[in-house]
Design a protein around this nucleic acid. Sequence first.
DNA 1: GTGAAAGCGCTAACAT
DNA 2: ATGTTAGCGCTTTCAC
Lengths: 331, 331
Amino acid sequence: MKTTIRDIANQLGVSASTVSKVINGKGSISPELRQKVLAVVEEVNYQPNLNAKSLRTRTTNTIGVILPDVTNLYYCYLMKGVEAKCQEENFSVLVGACNHNTQREREYFDLFRSKNVTGIISVTIGDLSRFSDVSMVVSTNEQVDGECRSDWVSIHNEPAARDLTQYLLNLGHRDIAYVNSGQQDTVSNQRLKGFLSCMEAHGLTVPPERIFDGSLFLDGSYQAGRRIILGGKLPTAVICHNNTNAYGVSKAFRDAGYRIPDDISIACFDAINQGDLYGTQYTCIMQPVEEIGREAASLLIRRSTGQLPETPLIQKALPYELVFGNSVRKL
Amino acid sequence: MKTTIRDIANQLGVSASTVSKVINGKGSISPELRQKVLAVVEEVNYQPNLNAKSLRTRTTNTIGVILPDVTNLYYCYLMKGVEAKCQEENFSVLVGACNHNTQREREYFDLFRSKNVTGIISVTIGDLSRFSDVSMVVSTNEQVDGECRSDWVSIHNEPAARDLTQYLLNLGHRDIAYVNSGQQDTVSNQRLKGFLSCMEAHGLTVPPERIFDGSLFLDGSYQAGRRIILGGKLPTAVICHNNTNAYGVSKAFRDAGYRIPDDISIACFDAINQGDLYGTQYTCIMQPVEEIGREAASLLIRRSTGQLPETPLIQKALPYELVFGNSVRKL
DNA sequence: GTGAAAGCGCTAACAT
DNA sequence: ATGTTAGCGCTTTCAC
């Protein structure tokens, strides 16, 4: 059996509360007794039962992160930021993988809540409004409409998409296809909006046939790529909603014998990897995802200690970057 | 305030223990009462306080994983396996990043223990013998000598290194350099041993100058690459202890103007990525790392439920694979 | 079949 | 400055 506070108290003939006070540096204890207690704590290598402590104090110092996939580097770097911040603040990190499955995400949410986590970092686009105690949720997605029910840390997606589009236009591209996420969330809408508005500002109308439904998964993205190829006249460039879309679309093009960027230029968001199997580094908008993770964790921790007012909800947009790879060519 | 078992009991005018029994399917409760309780549980969307439950039952259904780096895909896939198994078994995963820092690793170990985890998955080479309750630790590294103090799930590294070496010999390589991990753990020793014994079996003596001290980090590995280059006559191939070593060594070669595999062949262990920035896919020994993660978690869970005898400790070696990339050429 | 009571290890009022 | 007491929410004998 592990040593408890009571064991230490008995060994010294003092009360448990005295030992507790010494350990937590609370109340006032005489220096001599303090020393004696600390000596025993050291001697028996006392390890507090954090479970019991949590039950009593109603605080677990734990943050839950629910990710679609722990092998997608984008999420890994998010996690890295969360973990680093938590480590600094003496918090622990619980992690769950949901593979974009809403049901599973919900299960993890409930599980983490049952474990009394301080907060949950949500990376998916799931509807957060169903949760009553939203103050314990921070989203890593931009939310702009009145539906916003939680803090968020992200980037401004519309201008980001505009910048990416502008870059392609500068290189001479005019016929640009767009592969969306296949979802109707705010982020997806904002990115598409940025693309369209930039095209429009240059007097270019994007016909509906140039907008393709992608997917959150590789397979679906590959299919989107197939549809572009089978659609007749190829665009000169494709902008993809995210890295998974870009990988899927690229594979479709490669499988069909096209070279990137010689035959088709591909740009996207968040291609945060070491290049794909073919040595392609994607030109992309890069979110400061590690920093987003840090900020999200920080927000949760500050909220939990009452350092943040109930309203307004925090909406933090961090600066993004346009990263130049070798997936886009000048026309 | 969240609904507790007592709230439900009061609402129904029954005792807390009755509600508890219904929820956990223990004891014997009349079907009618059972139904009534379940109805309320449903109605109020009762979420148990797992913290309290853990305190009472002395079991948290949680596994801790301490990784050097959550953005190294090798560890990410390990994590994926652990998480998947835990999800199936209704366990949670606590994750910590230690960056190969022994002190930090130790801190996480103590923290996780204070949180009463069911077990800890150790991926580092740290000395496990200092922990009294070793049955709660499973290593993902092969341990062969009498020092073995915990279960492990891994591969047999010596034959794996031999196979990799044999492959290079088959391609005509004779002058092969070896970059080790810079550590003295069992895995490192076994891999080196496999390399040397295979060379020897072919009548080739490896001079000490052909063994280079690598590192667990990219920088140190880069330096090892530099030393190979500055050492005079180049070998035709380099075998690296792991993926980090290979990336560092390769970068050194590339920075010095060498091409892979035209000027130098590079092989390693566990190059589990989508290729590096230059489109190189490494020829390597691939551990079934996701499966190792699953097995490690499974082992911990079974141990915790008394399904495994105290002795002998489990030593599980899984089959590895030789994966062919484009980092090695035929001479 | 159901309930009363005790207690997991800890902390925090409230004495003294 | 120290100790007593109660209780966090749950489970588990043990009565009835």
